[in-house]
Amino acid sequence: MTAMTAKATARKQKKTWSLWTERRLPSEYEAVTYKFHSHFRRAPAPFELSEGWSINQFYLKNREGSKFALDDWEGYRDPRAYTYRRYVEDQRDREVYCDNLIDEFERLDSYRKLSRPWLDFLGRHYLPVRFPGHAMQMSAAYVAQMAPAAFVTNTFYFQMGNEMRRVQRQAYLAKALALDNGRAELADSDAARGLWTQAPQWQGLRELIEKQLIAFDWGEAFVSRNLVVRPIFDHVFNAEIAGLAKANGDDLLSLLHDDFRNYDEAYAVENTKALVSYATGKVASHAGLLRDWIGKWAPLGERAARGLSEALATAPGADSAEALFQRTMAAQAKLVADCGL
């Protein structure tokens, strides 16, 4: 009886979307992501308004009209196959981990044990990072809304959320450090804004970030963000800062950045590599296009990395600015090379 029931079930063919074209059935991830951008390359205009309406024209120019084009973006897959549900589940676990970490260090009264020079360094050269961090969140939101398939868009939604995650933990630390050390300026937004907009070491990054925000071609926005800004920014503000923090007895900061690096940065890197590989696999000449865009943004990237390296070199026990700069640019170059570019 049991065998017969099983047989009957097996015979009943599972149904899938009529628009799905492969022979195999889609996974749940594919069923809830496939062909959601019905407006991409829709004729006569992406959106159900006048063709001349400014946002139709904006998409026709910056999405449909981008040189970063190929026939089937619906074939792209997030290496982690994230649905919203799986993303929030994973990040809930990450955030519980961060809460536990902070709780553990707070029990040991760790903020008060940090040295004055380290706190001075954090105030000037680290805590204003929430401004560019927020801009990275904005730029992920941009690539997401312009990408030609939900398979690409959603990975940028999740990167956007991850940028916010890091910024909010940084804001938390700023406030906790300020309160426990009686140094209100560490959490003062006007003071941080002043440093971000005026202090010389931040200006290279600020120029890069501000200009990246107006790279409106979706392909160029992806390349400038994920192959120039991100690898430089993440190397400095995940890897190097974690090392310096550890050397200065700030294990909490070090461990938090390890978490951002191992999970969120890794997610961005996996998707950067996968998207480049997908695109160049479909259109080999895209490798040249992407290299050209990287080349165009490289001078601004180097200037940003130089300023940040000089800033980090002022931390107690830091390497020279030149060594920091070389490592930062090497990290960026490695990502580009890992993408096969």
């Binding site: 709780d103 929430r130 961090g133 801009a135 804001a171 700023a174 406030k175 804004r193 907009t197």
Partner: peptide
């Protein structure tokens, strides 16, 4: 649980405006 409540650091986490 981390000792700071949302209200303690919320403003620091949302004032990232600049000219």
């Amino acid at each position: 649980m981390p000792k700071l409540q949302r209200r303690d650091y919320y403003d620091t986490a949302r004032d990232m405006n600049w000219a």
